[in-house]
């Protein structure tokens, strides 16, 4: 899922200073699962905005809403139900959602309530960790299913580096060295010799270094 977290309330209050009617718009996709921007978080953020503005002696009218997703055109149309009732939209979706509203609602003012962090998973309740960098050229079949692009601080393709100590990364003793983990896992799978294969210099053009990426599925387009 896409993992995100709420921006500091001061920053959000700065965005809404001139607004009298605000639509706080949640997303029932990834940000609901990571407890950053679903219906419950919309309710909390709306309350925080009202309290923050009241502290400044200002009154705001807030509509609390949510869409199935903010990353599909068909669902963005759902904003029409609040047409004419808001000055600005505070989106609690990931950055994709904010972009989609900006793309599809050319005259609407839309601002992000979240900092979109990474593609990750939840190893335990309340914890999320980065697992994938969306690099567009997956090598997990060569690395025991563990991603060196997302989980190695240097995104090394032939690790570990000299900073790997007792299975930990030199950047932080709390961070695992994923190349040590790859080595150990390949060993358990009786594939340790794969570590001897030297991966070639990587073409990063699929990772966004060639500009914004686009996927087109001709079998799905109408």
């Amino acid at each position: 899922m896409i993992v995100a977290e709420r921006k500091p309330i001061d920053e959000i209050l700065g965005m809404v200073q001139d607004a009298e009617r605000i639509l706080v718009l949640g997303c029932r996709g990834c940000v609901t699962v990571c407890s950053a921007g679903g219906e419950r978080e919309v309710e909390i953020l709306a309350s925080l905005i009202r309290l923050g503005m009241k502290k400044q002696g200002k009154q705001v009218e807030i509509i609390e809403g949510s869409l199935v997703r903010q990353c599909d055109k068909e669902y963005i149309d759902g904003i029409d139900q609040w047409q004419g009732r808001y000055d600005i939209i505070i989106s609690t979706a990931c950055g994709v959602g904010v972009n989609f509203i900006a793309n599809l609602r050319p005259t609407d003012r839309v601002y992000p309530a979240l900092n979109t962090s990474f593609l990750g998973g939840s190893p335990e309740q309340g914890v999320w960790t980065e697992q994938c960098a969306g690099c567009g050229n997956c090598v997990l079949h060569l690395t025991g299913g563990l991603c060196p692009v997302a989980r190695c601080a240097k995104s090394l393709m032939n690790g570990p580096c000299g900073g790997s100590v007792n299975g930990k990364c030199e950047i932080n003793p709390q961070v695992e060295c994923v190349w040590q983990s790859i080595h150990d896992r390949l060993g358990r799978l009786d594939n340790q010799e794969m570590m001897n294969d030297i991966m070639p210099i990587r073409d990063w053009s699929t990772a966004g270094h060639g500009g914004p990426r686009k996927t087109l599925r001709d079998d799905l387009t109408i």
Binding site: S47, R50, L51, K54
Partner: peptide, 11 residues
């Protein structure tokens, strides 16, 4: 009890 209920009390 949810966070929102406690904030609502302040509101």
């Amino acid at each position: 009890l949810q966070v929102s209920a406690l904030l609502k009390a302040f509101e």
